[in-house]
Design a protein around this nucleic acid. Structure first.
Length: 287
DNA sequence: CGCAATGTTCGAAA
DNA sequence: TTTTCGAACATTGC
């Protein structure tokens, strides 16, 4: 796990949000332009932001939502490599904003791999963003309740990890934290969502909340690396128990952590702690 | 050089 | 119709 770049999951996005809030709040967007990026689904209607004032910086899942006083909303998704910075990056800049006020009056959106988004929509109109439109509850909000979560899980037969990654049962859980939360809750990633007991759903809720909140706390040091464009190893990486630990001993039982592919994503788990019960054996659950 | 990595979207399949 | 699955996207680093 050395030299891995940092992927913006919910804790990183929340950290960015907390940073943007005091910087951007109440500023007017004077100019907005694309740099080496074409207008389209990922960069739509940016010019509409010009002249509007930023009234707030919110987050839903991994999406940043900037409310504008003209009734629009600036939606930003960092994708895999998105970085927002007041300093002009050397390369891979996609968007540049000019802002009113003192101090840092320029905002740059850098995105090496172009998976990010930076677009203006009518406030609340997420027609062009299906994931945001169907996004589940915020994991760190009062609305993330075990019983409700369990009932949601009853509706799907997808493997629990795949369902989590869909963002529908709960918002903002990405590949890394899905592996971590399932490990902590001792739930096998291939288990059909509807097979989880109420108690297991409860455990998973607790695990998701614990891991995400701890990770947000660990963000302070990570952010420094993050903003210096380096995007290198963050502090929380040393806390990971399953992700990136294939072949290592499980910290709980000393069995070896396995790595498989689930839905095209690297999936790490402990075959000893995270059992697939007999009910599901032989249903394509490879060892 | 080919593969793995990532999150979201799209279209096909069930 | 709804849900699920796999491919595509873009780019870099190993």
């Amino acid at each position: 796990m050395k030299g891995r770049s940092l992927i913006p999951e919910l804790p990183e996005v929340e950290t960015v949000r907390r940073e943007l809030e005091p910087w951007l709040n109440q500023r007017q967007i004077l100019k907005a332009g694309l740099v080496d990026a074409k207008p389209g689904p990922k960069y739509a209607e940016l010019e509409r932001a010009i002249g509007q004032k930023i009234l707030g910086v919110n987050r839903r899942g991994k999406f940043l939502l900037l409310r504008l006083d003209g009734g629009d909303e600036l939606v930003i998704h960092l994708g895999m490599t998105g970085i927002i910075s007041p300093k002009e990056p050397q390369k891979h800049v996609r968007v540049a904003l000019e802002l009113s006020g003192e101090g840092n009056t320029r905002l740059y959106f850098q995105d090496v791999r172009r998976f990010g988004r930076f677009l203006v929509v009518k406030a609340g109109d997420y027609q062009s963003l299906p994931t945001l439109k169907t996004l589940g509850v915020e994991p760190l909000s009062e609305d993330f309740k075990p019983l409700d979560f369990w009932q949601t899980l009853q509706a799907s037969k997808m493997p629990i990890k795949s369902y989590l990654l869909s963002q529908r049962p709960v918002a903002g859980v990405g590949n890394i934290y899905a592996d971590e939360a399932l490990w902590l809750a001792k739930i096998h990633p291939l288990r059909p969502s509807s097979s989880l007991s109420q108690m297991e759903a409860h455990e998973l809720v607790s695990a998701i909340q614990k891991i995400l909140s701890q990770s947000i706390e660990a963000q302070g040091t990570t952010l420094n690396d993050y903003r210096t464009v380096n995007g290198e190893v963050g502090a929380y990486l040393s806390e990971l128990k399953a992700y990136g630990h294939a072949g290592d001993a499980c910290p709980r039982c000393q069995n070896l952590i396995l790595k498989t592919s689930l839905g095209g994503r690297g999936t790490h788990f402990c075959p000893q702690c995270q059992r697939v019960t007999n009910n599901f054996a032989g249903q394509g659950c490879k060892p």
